[in-house]
Structure formats: C-alpha cells, structure tokens
Write a protein that binds this DNA or RNA. Structure first.
Lengths: 235, 235, 235, 235
DNA sequence: AATGAATGAGCCTTCATTCAT
DNA sequence: GATGAATGAAGGCTCATTCAT
C-alpha cells in the first residue's frame, strides 16, 4: 500500500527475487497464507527477512505476486489447451480435465499453481478475490460453453452451471481434500499414470450424464417437489 | 504432551464447558484452527480466557474435543440414515447425498460438524488425522459398499473408489470452494430449496454413470493409450 | 481500535497498570511518543512487553491514557486555581501563571503532565488532537476571559487572543525550549525560588502591556503600515 | 563515530549533494530528525538510497550538515539585520522580531532554518547541542545586548535574561506550538499580513515592559505574599 | 474451582546501513 | 564514482499459555 512494488529495471534476471517467488509459492501452497511465515520462506530461499520487504514490500505483496504468477500460468495453460478447439466437444472436455489434473500434480513449472488457487478458493485472501476470479474465469467460461453446447442449453442455464460445478468438484477434490482421497483409497499415489486414469474416469463419469442430458428436458417441471420418479428417462 | 484432559467428576452438566464447546465448534468451523483465537472463543462463550485451558488443557485439546464430538455426530448421522437400508440402493444414495449437503448448510444445531471436517480435510491438523479419518470412515465405507453394489464390483476396486471420490468431490466442492461456486454462479445462494436441487443434481449426475457402469467391463484393457473409443456405453 | 480498552472491575488498585502509567508518563514526556519504545517502558516498569497490550491494548492506547490522565490533572489544577475567582483580575492572572509554571516543574503528582502536553502541542499525535484541545480549553478560555476583561475587549477579539498567546508563549518556552533557556542563561536551574521569580517576571512583563492597553484603541488604524510612532503614546 | 565525511575534491558544485541537503532540510524541518527517513529524503531528492551514506556517511552526518548550514544562514541573517545598527534600539528590536517570524514562515528559499532550530530546541539531538547553541548565540547575544541597553542593565543581568526569554518565548510559541495557537485562535492562518500583525503585537507587548522598566523599582512591595522586595533594579 | 493478571515466544514490518558491482 | 541489492537490529503487536490467588 505504501511502499514501492517494483523497483527493477528489467523483468528478468533477479535471482533473489525469483528464488523468493519460487520458494514462497511452494510454502504458501503447502501451508496457506496465514500459516506460512516470512521467516520460513526467507530461510528456505537463503535470503534475509527484509528481502521480502525490499522486493515485494509486504507479505501480502509477495503473496499477491505469487498468485499473480499462478494466475498467469493458469491463463497460459488454459490458452494452450484451446489449440484443438475444432476437435469434437468431448475430446476437448477430456483434454481440459487432463490438463487441469496435470497442472495440479505434474506441471513442468512450479507445481503449486493450482494448490495456491485451491487455498484461495477455500479461504480467500480478501484483497485477492478479484485476481483469483480473473485467473479462473477463462477456465470456467470455457467449461460452461463446452458443457452448454453439449447439453444444448445456454452457458448461463442452471443445469449447465450445476454440471460445471460437478465436473470441477471432481477435479478439485484431489487438490483440496487429499486426506479424503487417502481415506478412501489408502494406497493412492499420484503417479503420472494414476493422473491419466483419474482424468479418464472423471471424463467418463461426467460425460455419461452430459451426453444423455437431452432426453431429460420435459421432466424438468416436477423437479421442485422431490419427485418419486427421477428424470433419468431411460432408466 | 499436554497435561489435563478432564478434571470433572461427572461427564454431564457443565454449562461453561458445553458452551465453550458449542461456540468453539462454530468458530473453528468458520475460521479454521489457526485463525480462530482462544480469546474470541472465550469472549463469545462469555467465559474467562483461562477457561479453555482449565477445561481442555489446551487450544488443541479444545479443538480435539470439538472434532471428536463432530465425529460422534457424524457417526450417529451416518447410522441414522442407514435405517432404510432395505430401500433401493439408488434411494439410499440420494438420501446420503441430501443428508450430507443438508448437514453442511442447514444442520439443526451444531451445523458445523461437516465444515470442521471440511477444514480438516483441506488442511489436516497433524495430531488429528487419525481421528478425522475414523470419523469419516463410516460414511466412506457405506458409500463404497453402496456404489460397489450398484456397479457390481468390490468396495476395494479402483472403479468403486473413483466413483466414491467423484461423488464426494461434487459435494465437498460446495463446502471447500465457495468462491469457485460463486465464480461460476454469481447469483447462487444456499437456500434450502437450492440445497435440494443440488442434491438432486449430484444424484442424477452420478447415477447416470453408476447405473450404466456394467456395460463397460470389456473395454477396460485399451484404456492406457487413450483409446479411440471410450467405454461410455451408449456412445 | 480492535482490542478491549478496560477489563478491570474497579478503577483502583492495579499496581502494574499504575506503574506502567507512571513510568510511561515519564518516558513519553522525556522522549515523545514516537521515540519512546514499549520495551523501554516495560523494562522500566518491571513488566512484560505484553503487559501494555493487556492493559491498554496498544502503544497508542497507553499513550492516550497517559494524556487523558494528564488532561484530568490539568483540569483539576485549573479548577483548583479558580477558588479565588473574586480576587482582582491581576491577582488571578498571577496565580494562573504561577500555577502553570509550578505544575510544569514541581507538581506534586507526576511532574510530566505539562511536558506531555508540550510534546503534543509541538508534534500532535493525530488521534489525540481533540483530547489535548479539550484538556487545554479550560485554561485557554479562562485566560481569554481574564485578559479580555482587563483590556476591555471580548474574549474573541484578536487583541485578546494575541495577548493570551504572548502570555502562554512566555510560559511554554520553558517547557518546550529548555535548551534555548539554557543558551541564554547557562546557570539557570529550576529551583522553586526560580520558578517563583519567573512567574513574577512573566506576570509583570505581561501586565505592563495589558494594564496599559486601553489607551491604544484609537491608534489601531495606522498599524498596518508600520508607523514611525508606536501607540505607546502617553506611556 | 562515523567514517566518511567528505570525499569530494572541490567543495562546490555537486548537484546531488546540494539537492540532498535542500530536500533533507525541508523534510527534517517538517518531521523532525527521527521521524524523517533516509528513503523519503532520497526519493524526494531523486537520488539513490545509498547517496546519503555516500555523501554524508550517515543519517546524522546529513542532519549535522543541514543544521550546520542552517546555523550559517542564521548567523548570516543575524549579521544582515545588524546593518541598521545605528537605528534606535526599539526599531532594531522590531526588525529582529519581524525577521525571526518571517524566516519562520515566509523565508525565501530555505525556509526551514528556523524550524530546524525549533525542533532542536524542543528535542535536542545529543551530538548537536553545541552546534545549535553556537548558531543561536548571535541572535541571543544581540537580543541581550539590545534589551540590556534599553533597560539599563548588563546583558548578563537576570532581568535582561528574563526579558529576552519572554521575547523569544512569544516568537517561538508560533513555531513550537502551532496547535496551541490554533486552539486559542481557530481561524488563525499564517498569511504574510498576519505575520506582520503578530510581529507588531509582540514588539508592542514586549516594549511596554522594557521601556517602562526603570520606573518599576519601587512598586515591587505589594507583590503576592512572596518577598517584599524583588531582586530588580538595585541588584 | 475458577479467574484476572502476567508472560514469552514469535510474527510482520521498518529502517539505517553495508556490500558488490 | 555511484548505485541497486541485501542485511540485521529493533519495534509494535498477537497469542497461547501459565501464575497466583
């Protein structure tokens, strides 16, 4: 708020700053904003406690930069997956799911991008809401478009939204609730193969509903009262 | 590590202790373990700062007790839903989903049971892992049994587990990632009706896959290489 | 701002709090608000660093209380001097001057009342302006009334105000600019006798002008241009 | 205590150094020594953080230089006013008062000379006492001479000193206790005209006593209860 | 049995200062 | 000769915990 944010001439080549950013990313991702301490970060980055203040002005400044970078990477990754936009919707959806899970556990760059976001989603840092939302929007928007297209409803339709949330929930649970996963599946380990398998499962699981959605349209009206017969048509 | 655990003659009827427990539950559920302060809790419970230490020995002691109680309630609730165990699996599943979502947002008294668990799942308190797992087990176990029964595979099968996680993920996302939900659905608000609708959606969404699972068995083998044809039954 | 200000049942008998207040008064008076450190104060008061937070919530809270107490004492002293209000104005004025100087250097209670005020007057603590003003008002008001009465002008008249400031300036200089006094008068020392002598001098010095003021009324108009002959005419 | 003092070949023409000095003067005058930070100064002077250290070795080094310069200017100004030394004492006195007030609020370039001195008088920087005293001496000495001459007593006489202090107190109060002035005179504003008016008032106020001083010797007796004969005159 | 008072460790931040180009 | 980067020593504040009734 009061101090300088950026004092450096060029954006590249500031080893201390970069290391700080990298280490901070990891630690923030592990512990969350509050629990992480500047000292931990600085010790791990082999820097002085005041270095954070010098380079980022603030603990929040450092964190903001970390999130910003995460956001940049997220946007970039999202953009990258767009390439095969002319592929069939199903394939695109599978690609998106796989990409998300991948960036969550095996992104080439710092692997904490998504976990930072996860923390923010769980316990938002007041000052950062907008930034995080902005970072997530491309993904969310795409998902809504995609699903909307597949179920033949506008992106803003309640059903589209519910499906998008269902889909994201399946992905996020791995990021947000590791212990839950472990509790259900003790031998679970995040190997690249496992990631693939999970991605496939989530896709299959979700497409099953999405691709059969159309047949349901007419049964909508009774929903309200918890109907004895659910709209699963063919069932 | 800590000394006192319980100094009282009888286990019942200690209004201060009870109020402390109640208030602490709410506050821990709202802010998480670290962010909640003993003082906040004591002020809110209209008790002395030392009361926590007196009754529970520790902040962690209080929290443990809160979680323990949450766990008890969770087990109880899980047991309660079992009553109609002879109902069709689908209905049981629907009931479980609805019950979870309900306890998450509109539980009667201690509406924070599940939220505490959510916090623990997201950022486990080291000392409590086992306790939380234990508390979750009944639910997880039941879910695995149920789904396993429906898809005709053992509870320990990878597919059963993936389905359970998918199902729980859809529920947990509402507990763990409010901002995500808001980002996708800005007008969203957690009215009782909305909860019902979401519960229905999650059930529909999940059952679509689960109830059609059988037909998939043969297609398994090609999975690894991203098969041209995915096992999605009707497709 | 956020913490509790007063947690104590009765206003008396809290030795730590009182000692803290006393020591803080002295140190704040010596060094000013910023330069004084909580640690210095606590060490000198033989208390823990956190004691300040506990009893006053804040460094500013402690300081505020110190100033408030100073203000109370100031008001009390001012009120006390009023007793001989029916005495001739000149005598009252002399009494006021003497009382001020006295409280400045030889108040029975903590001797820093006035020096705190002096610091506040020199470099006001933003949050305390009102409090200090309130504390000073009784004195200022009385002085204006008194002088106004003697020179036959309303208290709000510019001349009354200028005289009051001149009078107070002569007193304050001893509080605010010790080094100046020492520079002019190296052997100077604040013995009770010296205080008396100074009080007399200030009274004489000021009354000379005030008591002869009437004769000046007509000469006002030429003032602006720095007249060759000043209005001391008849004198 | 500090190492470097001056590393430059010639004493003139170092724009950075000069600007630093100028800006530092203003900022020190505004905020005082402690509250002013090297960074503020360097930023305002458009110089590097290390510049102060480079040019003056120290924060105190910079401040010392600022004060030294202030002292030089003060001496110069004092000398300048002396020019009309053959004018009547009263006129010289008026001129001195006006000059002081003027330099306090409307000095041409470095308008902070006097305010720096004011800060030093209120809260002396240990290492600078002598320097400041030296800077003030010319003014003080002249004032004592002048007043001594007018009341017919030596410059070292107690009465002369008391008068000088009274005179200076009336001036300094405007520099040191702005809030006091404002409290007494809310609408007060330091326009050039106001400065003139105040200067006139202080001169009138003081001359009234000084010019009538002799006549006072006998009237002493009624004073308060305190001594029948006060030390004036014969002493 | 229960509480108000006190404590010490740790956190974030600021700042003057020094270092390595 | 001059500067951007880095450092360490405080400072204020918060908090869980303990002490003395």
């Amino acid at each position: 708020m009061k101090t300088v944010e950026r004092r450096h001439k060029s954006t590249d080549a500031d080893p201390t700053r970069d290391k700080l950013l990298d280490v901070a990313g990891r630690i923030f991702a592990d512990r969350g904003y509050r629990a992480a301490t500047i000292r931990q970060i600085c010790v791990a980055a082999d820097a002085n406690v005041a270095a954070v203040n010098y380079h980022f002005g603030d603990k929040l400044g450092l964190y903001t930069e970390v999130v910003r970078q995460s956001a940049r990477i997220a946007e970039f990754q999202a953009a990258q997956t767009v390439i095969d936009q002319d592929a069939p919707a199903e394939e695109v959806l599978r690609a998106v799911i796989r990409a998300r899970l991948h960036s969550l556990f095996h992104g080439d760059r710092p692997d904490w991008n998504f976990r930072i976001m996860a923390h923010e989603l769980a316990q938002p840092t007041p000052a950062l809401r907008r930034l995080v939302n902005k970072a997530g929007q491309p993904l969310f928007h795409r998902l809504l478009e995609l699903i909307g297209g597949m179920i033949g409803l506008p992106a803003e339709d309640e059903n589209t939204r519910l499906c998008a949330i269902s889909l994201l929930g399946q992905i996020m649970v791995y990021a947000l609730a590791g212990p839950l996963v472990t509790a259900i599946w003790p031998e679970f380990e995040m190997t690249p193969e496992q990631v693939e398998r999970i991605a496939d499962h989530i896709a299959d699981f979700s497409l099953s509903y999405i691709q059969n959605f159309r047949s349901k349209t007419s049964a909508r009206s009774i929903k309200r009262t918890r109907p004895a017969v659910k709209p699963r048509a063919s069932k």
